[in-house]
């Protein structure tokens, strides 16, 4: 009998074991749902698969009676726009500021403390300020994502830049590189993988900020919808929406991972994510 630390699943065993918790969760839900519905057919807490299908059909494939739009797709489009816009702005800011702070001692002295302080501010605490300053429209939601994610990205990136071996920067200078050329040819290409990694870690917080701001003030969006239908205990809408949000988050993460693998083939094995 091998030790537990030496027993490994085969290829199919791995898939089977990975799927097991999902199957168990689904089975537990169905059993509980059946039990509740047997007692009270109008129970809304644990809807049956049929009610899910009906809700999904209504939201995704039937135009809304009042607005004439397909709610799920309109919500998804609105939310993804905010998310992608916010993350893009955050990435651009973080690249500029992170490399400047990590590489240029003058910039580090001037801006590292303020970034460290800003990263400690709980972003949701400033949401009221954002609503007051930027209004209840799109801008404040995008700004919340930017504000919530950028300080972390800047710090992570500036640490990555500062961790580049001193020898590389000296060598680049002896090869005739200017500061700008060191940024574009030596530093930037080497911290891009770290940026993608940090961005993947930021996806979770970004979704959190998005759903929160949508819950408080919006007229469409995935977060807006689930908080709206909460009033009617519409679990048949909320649960598919949560699953859909999870799937979208997973897909974004997966895309970034694929990008990282294909774009940075020079990375030593243990560093590629």
């Amino acid at each position: 009998m091998a030790r537990a630390i030496n027993r490994r699943p085969g290829r199919s065993g791995q898939i089977l074991l990975g799927a097991l918790p999902f199957v168990l969760l689904a089975a537990a839900y169905l059993l509980a749902s059946d039990a509740r519905l047997a007692v009270n057919p109008n129970d809304k807490l644990l809807p049956s698969l049929e009610s899910f299908a009906a809700a999904i059909d209504r939201l995704a494939f039937q135009p809304d009676a009042r607005k004439g739009t397909y709610l799920l797709w309109a919500d998804t489009w609105a939310s993804l726009q905010r998310l992608v816009l916010g993350l893009s702005i955050a990435t651009a800011l973080a690249l500029t500021a992170g490399i400047a702070i990590g590489l240029l001692p003058m910039m580090r002295a001037a801006f590292a403390p303020v970034v460290a302080a800003l990263s400690m501010v709980p972003p949701l605490a400033v949401l009221p300020i954002l609503f007051i300053v930027f209004g209840l429209g799109e801008l404040s939601k995008v700004v919340l994502i930017v504000f919530g994610v950028t300080p972390f990205l800047i710090r992570d990136l500036s640490f990555a830049v500062a961790a580049l071996p001193r020898e590389q920067l000296v060598k680049a200078q002896t090869l005739g590189a200017s500061s700008w050329q060191i940024v574009t040819r030596v530093v930037l290409p080497q911290v891009l993988p770290r940026l993608v990694g940090a961005l993947r870690l930021s996806l979770g917080p970004a979704w959190l900020f998005l759903i929160s701001s949508e819950a408080i003030a919006a007229t469409e969006g995935l977060g807006y919808r689930i908080f709206l239908v909460r009033r009617y205990l519409a679990m048949d809408v909320i649960l598919p929406y949560v699953a859909w949000i999870t799937l979208l988050a997973f897909l974004l993460d997966y895309l970034l991972q694929r990008l990282s693998r294909s774009a940075f083939r020079w990375l030593p094995g243990e560093q590629s994510l």
Partner: peptide, 21 residues
Amino acid sequence: EEPCADRGVVFQRYSVFPHLT
């Protein structure tokens, strides 16, 4: 006053750029 192209250097480690062929 700063490193420049008239003096080349080879260190024990980290002397080539890992992201370039």
